[in-house]
């Protein structure tokens, strides 16, 4: 167990460092160490390191973890490993509300703080989640629910596109980049706020480890063991929506991380125990996003890929693999 955590931490450290070193301008390791320690280095390198790469890498680390954790919570909630913020349309709902919010306010020349963006995204996430929950009452077939989630996602994306098409030029550039998903343009102020939100929410999720472990057995057994199901469900929905919202507010919708990372981590650890899975999923998501952002920035440099393009390339096959395995197990 400890060794497996060490693997994840090492991987995170390696990719974090790689994200700082590699780019259109290469910064050697020595410079990075010196720069981080506050010793004098080449001023250009210093600026790239401190103003661009470090906040961006930290954002990938934090938001990747948040996405994976949101995915894990949703998968536990629906008792289904295919659930996730992107698949169920929660990210897209959050995106739509943020886009509406931005177009309305920016059009009137009002500057928007990132905290307000998180709130707008949270509102959107809760709206989509509400819709999904409403549908899930009617539909007991999980694959149908996922299809509905994907449809909700498409509708929200279409609405966002519509908004972007008719918005003023200046806003479009901003919105277009963001609505495809990207970790670029993150400031230290952003990092501070997202770190605060993500760490508090993740900690709260960790506190749910015990009731969550009972919930995994099925609702009847959880109730019999004394779990307050209503409260737990509300907590799961709110926490996963907050995490998804935080990601959408800063990076736009990022696909498949919430789905692939928990699955890979679960396979690595060979357990479902929330006490292990909550921190492990967070780390796994961080590693996944750091790795994908490294590729997004460098694969076709200087052209940058959207982060969702890369996460989809790596995440979608994992999802397919997972469903194939599940089908096999059911056939056994």
């Amino acid at each position: 167990m400890g060794r497996k955590f060490l693997i994840l931490v090492t991987l995170a450290a390696v990719f974090l460092t790689a994200n700082l070193c590699v780019g259109t301008v290469k910064i050697p390791l020595g410079q990075i160490a010196a720069g981080l320690a506050g010793r004098p280095v080449d001023p250009a390198a210093q600026r790239i390191l401190w103003d661009i790469r470090l906040p961006r890498a930290l954002a990938a680390l934090l938001l990747g973890g948040a996405l994976a954790l949101a995915g894990y919570l949703l998968q536990s909630f629906f008792h289904n490993p295919i659930a996730g913020p992107f698949v169920l349309g929660i990210s897209s709902g959050a995106k739509l509300v943020v886009a509406v919010f931005l177009v309305c306010l920016l059009g009137r020349g009002i500057r928007v703080s990132s905290g307000a963006l998180i709130l707008a995204a949270f509102l959107g996430a809760m709206l989509s989640m509400g819709l999904v929950l409403l549908l899930s009452r009617r539909m007991h077939n999980m694959s149908m629910l996922v299809v509905c989630g994907v449809l909700i996602g498409y509708i929200c994306s279409a609405c966002t596109e519509l908004l972007v098409t008719f918005a003023d030029d200046a806003d479009i550039v901003n919105l277009h980049n963001w609505s495809n998903g990207s970790f670029s343009g993150i400031t230290w102020g952003n990092v501070a706020l997202m770190a605060a939100v993500v760490s508090v929410v993740s900690f709260l999720a960790f506190l749910l480890a015990k009731p969550l472990s009972a919930y995994q057995l099925g609702e009847a057994y959880a109730r019999n063991l004394g779990v307050n199901l209503k409260l737990l469900k509300v907590q799961m929905v709110v926490l996963s929506s907050l995490l998804s919202a935080c990601v959408v507010a800063y990076a736009g919708p990022v696909s498949f991380v919430g789905l692939a990372a928990p699955y890979l981590v679960k396979s690595l650890f060979g357990t479902q125990r929330p006490l292990v899975m909550i921190p492990a999923c967070f780390l796994g998501g961080s590693v996944f996003c750091l790795f994908c952002d490294l590729l997004a920035r460098n694969l076709f440099a200087p052209t940058e890929l959207s982060i969702s393009t890369v996460t989809a390339v790596f995440g979608a096959p994992v999802a397919v693999w997972m469903m194939l395995l599940r089908g096999k197990e059911k056939a056994l």
């Binding site: 099925g218 009847a220 057994y221």
Partner: peptide, 15 residues
Amino acid sequence: QIAIVLTSRLRGEMM
């Protein structure tokens, strides 16, 4: 006080 054994399968994924 009360424990149950139900017909519906307990979800024991990876346990």
